[in-house]
Design a protein around this nucleic acid. Structure first.
Length: 610
DNA sequence: GCCGTTTTCGGCCCGACTGTTTTCAGTCG
C-alpha cells in the first residue's frame, strides 16, 4: 500500500502513541527521565499549532519543544511507512492492555510489573479476578490490605465521575468554600488548581486554607459532613470525595507566607516544574513552603545555615525569580515564563472590558425567555448593547425565523429601543443600566450543507449584526466544511463566525477544518471568530484562540444565552479568552457601540479590498 | 530522550502520605 493511500496520523494519534510508549517504558522499568521525555513530547505534539505528521513526512521538521532527533525520526517513520518499529517491538514485548492498569488509583508502574510478571495479569479484569481470589497478597510489597486497596481502586475507576464543566465545578467549589470559611481558626479559603486557571473542565477541586490550626481544620473537613470517602488525610493536607461529586483536596498554609503555597497548589504541574528549574539554576530549591538556599552539594542547607525565603503573595515569589506576575490562566508552560522574563506578557481581557454581547436567543426561536426579558436582563447587567441573534429559517429544529418573522422581530426590537431612549430622557433608567443601551437586531445565520447562506443579501444587509454558524452536515470532508466556513467568512454581511469548531465538550468532536485557511481568511476580511462562553462549548478553544489572534484575527466573546441567567456565561468565555492570551484590543465587543457598529457596517469595504 | 549565554555529557522538581521491603520505595499531585 502506498504511503499516501492511508490517512496521515493526526496530532492526537501521535500523542496517544507516544503516551503509550511512555507508559510501556515505565512498566518496563526504564529511566524515569526517558519516560517523562515521551510524555512531554506527546503533550507538545497534541497542542502543536500545525499537523505534525504530514509536515515531518515531507521534511518540514518545525521545532516542537521536547521533540528531538529520536522522537522526530519516529514521527517521520510512522508518517511515511505507517509503522513505528520501536512501538511494534514494545507491543510484542508486553501487552498494550497493561497500561490501562496504571489508571487504577494506587497502582503504579512497579505494581503493574509485579502482577504481570508474577501472575501473568494483563488486563483490568485479570487484576480484579486475581485480587478477588486473594492471589495478589504475597507478591513482593503487596499485603492483604494493599490487595483490598487495589480492589477499591478498580471500583472507583468504574464509577469515577467525568471531569466537570467549569460552571458546575465553580458551583461545587463555592459551596465547599462557604462551609469551610465559617469554621473556627480559618482565616481564608482560596480556590486553586485548574479551576483557578479557568480550565474548561475540572477533575479535582483544590482549596487552600489559611490557618494556624491545621489539625482542627482537617478534622473538621473530614467530618461529620457530606463526605463519601476520605482516601487520604495527613497533618497538613487531606482529600475527600463528595457523594456523587468530585474529589476535593485541601491544603493548609500558615498566614503571611501564601505566595509559594498559592503557586504550588494552582499549578499547572508543568509551570511549577519550570519555575523550580529556574530556582535551582539560581541556587534555590522551590517548594510550597518557599525558597530554600542550596548548599555546595546541590541539596538544601540544613541546621543553622538553612535559609528559607517566603512571600505573602504570588507576585513576590515571581519577583524573586526576576519574573513579572503571571496570571493563573497563563500558567501552562506555553511560553508565559519567557514572556514574564522579558516583560512582554499580554494584558489579558477582563469581564469589565466587555461592552456587550453579540450572540443570544429568545423564545422566538429556541430560547426560553422573551425578547424583552433577555434585553432587560442584559441592560441591568450594565451592557451597552446586546445582540439578539435568533436562528435563521432552515434550522427548523430550533424554530428558525422566516423573512416575515424577521421583519416582525425588527419592529419589536425597534419599539424596545424607543422605550430605552425614553427611559434615558425621563431619568427612569433601571438600576445597573448605562445610558444609551441598545438592543441590536441580529441573527444566527445557518451555513447550509451546500455552503450557501440561509437569507438573501438584501435581508442580511438589514441586520445590525450577523453571526454565522455551521450546525448541519457536520460529517462532510475537511475540504467541504472548510469551503462552507470560508463562504461565510467572505460574505460581506457576516460579522462573526459562531462557535467555529462546532464542538460540545466531552460529547461532540471538532469540525474537521483547515484552521490555517480559516484564520487567514478571517484576518483578511476582519470577520471575528467567536469564543462562545456556553460551558459545554467554550469554542474557540484556548489554543485556537491564541493561534487566531497570532494570525491577526479579531474575536468576539459571547454568551450564546438561551435564557436570562445564561447571559452570565460571558464570564466563562472571558476565562477561555484569557487562557488564549487574548487582550481587549482583539475583542470586537470590547468596543463601544459606535465603534462596533462602524466595524460591522464596514464589512463590505473590508471584504471588497481583498 | 532531551537539552545547553556556565555544559554536546551529565544532569533532569519537590514534598506528603502510605504501607511495609523497619529505613525506604511507591504513588500521587
Amino acid at each position: 500500500m502506498a504511503p499516501d493511500a492511508r490517512p496521515a496520523p493526526g496530532n492526537d494519534d501521535l500523542a496517544r502513541i507516544f503516551h503509550e510508549i511512555g507508559d510501556m517504558l515505565e512498566v518496563r522499568g526504564e529511566l524515569v527521565f526517558k519516560v517523562q521525555a515521551y510524555h512531554r513530547a506527546a503533550d507538545a505534539i497534541a497542542r502543536a499549532p500545525f499537523d505534525v505528521a504530514p509536515a515531518y513526512a515531507v521534511g518540514d521538521r518545525r521545532p516542537i519543544p521536547g521533540v528531538g532527533s529520536a522522537i522526530g525520526d519516529k514521527i517521520v517513520e510512522l508518517a511515511t511507512t505507517g509503522r513505528m518499529m520501536f512501538h511494534d517491538r514494545l507491543r510484542a514485548e508486553m501487552p498494550a492492555s497493561l497500561v490501562e492498569l496504571l489508571a487504577v488509583p494506587g497502582v503504579g508502574p512497579k505494581t503493574v510489573r509485579v502482577v504481570w510478571q508474577g501472575l501473568g495479569v494483563e488486563t483490568l479484569d485479570d487484576l480484579r479476578h486475581a485480587a478477588e481470589a486473594g492471589k495478589l497478597r504475597g507478591l513482593r510489597g503487596i499485603s492483604a490490605a494493599t490487595e483490598q486497596r487495589i480492589l477499591d481502586g478498580i471500583r472507583q475507576l468504574d464509577d469515577r465521575p467525568q471531569r466537570m464543566l467549569i460552571d458546575r465545578a465553580q458551583s461545587v467549589a463555592d459551596d465547599v468554600v462557604a462551609q469551610l470559611a465559617g469554621a473556627p481558626g480559618v482565616h481564608r479559603v482560596v480556590q486553586a488548581g485548574s479551576l483557578r486557571r479557568r480550565r474548561e473542565t475540572v477533575g479535582d477541586l483544590d482549596l487552600l486554607v489559611e490557618t494556624e490550626d491545621p489539625d482542627a481544620v482537617i478534622a473538621r473537613f473530614l467530618g461529620p459532613g457530606p463526605v463519601d470517602r476520605a482516601p487520604g488525610a495527613g497533618r497538613v493536607r487531606a482529600s475527600v470525595t463528595l457523594p456523587r461529586g468530585p474529589r476535593v483536596d485541601i491544603m493548609t498554609m500558615p498566614a503571611g507566607v501564601g505566595g509559594t503555597y498559592l503557586l504550588h497548589f494552582t499549578g499547572s504541574a508543568a509551570h511549577n516544574v519550570a519555575l523550580r528549574e529556574i530556582a535551582r539554576d539560581r541556587g534555590w530549591s522551590l517548594s510550597e513552603k518557599g525558597f530554600l538556599r542550596l548548599g555546595a552539594d546541590g541539596e538544601p542547607m540544613t541546621g543553622a545555615e538553612a535559609e528559607l525565603r517566603t512571600f505573602p503573595d504570588v507576585a513576590g515569589a515571581y519577583r524573586f525569580l526576576d519574573l513579572s506576575y503571571i496570571e493563573p490562566e497563563l500558567r501552562e508552560d506555553r511560553g508565559e515564563i519567557a514572556a514574564a522574563r522579558e516583560d512582554r506578557l499580554p494584558t489579558l481581557v477582563t469581564l469589565g472590558d466587555l461592552c456587550g454581547d453579540l450572540h443570544s436567543h429568545s423564545d422566538w426561536s429556541d430560547g426560553v425567555h422573551s425578547i424583552e426579558a433577555m434585553a432587560e436582563t442584559a441592560r441591568r447587567r450594565g451592557h451597552a448593547y446586546q445582540a439578539l441573534t435568533d436562528h435563521s429559517q432552515s434550522l427548523a429544529i430550533a424554530r428558525g425565523l422566516d423573512p416575515a418573522r424577521v421583519e416582525q422581530q425588527r419592529r419589536v426590537i425597534a419599539a424596545l429601543n424607543a422605550r430605552y431612549v425614553a427611559d434615558d430622557e425621563a431619568g427612569t433608567r433601571p438600576e445597573g443600566a448605562v445610558p444609551g443601551f441598545r438592543l441590536l437586531h441580529g441573527c444566527e445565520l445557518e451555513v447550509r450543507a451546500d455552503g450557501t447562506l440561509d437569507y438573501d443579501d438584501d435581508l442580511l444587509s438589514r441586520f445590525d449584526i450577523v453571526v454565522a454558524s455551521v450546525h448541519v452536515a457536520r460529517r462532510q470532508t475537511r475540504a467541504e466544511l472548510t469551503r462552507r466556513t470560508l463562504n461565510a467568512i467572505r460574505s460581506p454581511h457576516v460579522d462573526v463566525i459562531a462557535h467555529p469548531a462546532g464542538r460540545m465538550i466531552q460529547e461532540r468532536a471538532d469540525l474537521d477544518l483547515d484552521w490555517e485557511a480559516v484564520f487567514e481568511a478571517a484576518a483578511a476580511t476582519g470577520t471575528a471568530l467567536e469564543i462562545n462562553g456556553s460551558p459545554p462549548r467554550l469554542d474557540l478553544s484556548a489554543e485556537r484562540a491564541r493561534q487566531a489572534i497570532e494570525a491577526g484575527c479579531l474575536v468576539a466573546i459571547d454568551s450564546d444565552a438561551h435564557r436570562t441567567t445564561e447571559l452570565d456565561s460571558l464570564r466563562w468565555g472571558v476565562g477561555q479568552a484569557r487562557r488564549g492570551w487574548v487582550e481587549a484590543r482583539h475583542v470586537v465587543n470590547a468596543r463601544p457601540l459606535a465603534d462596533l457598529l462602524a466595524w460591522a457596517a464596514g464589512k463590505p469595504q473590508r471584504v471588497g479590498s481583498h
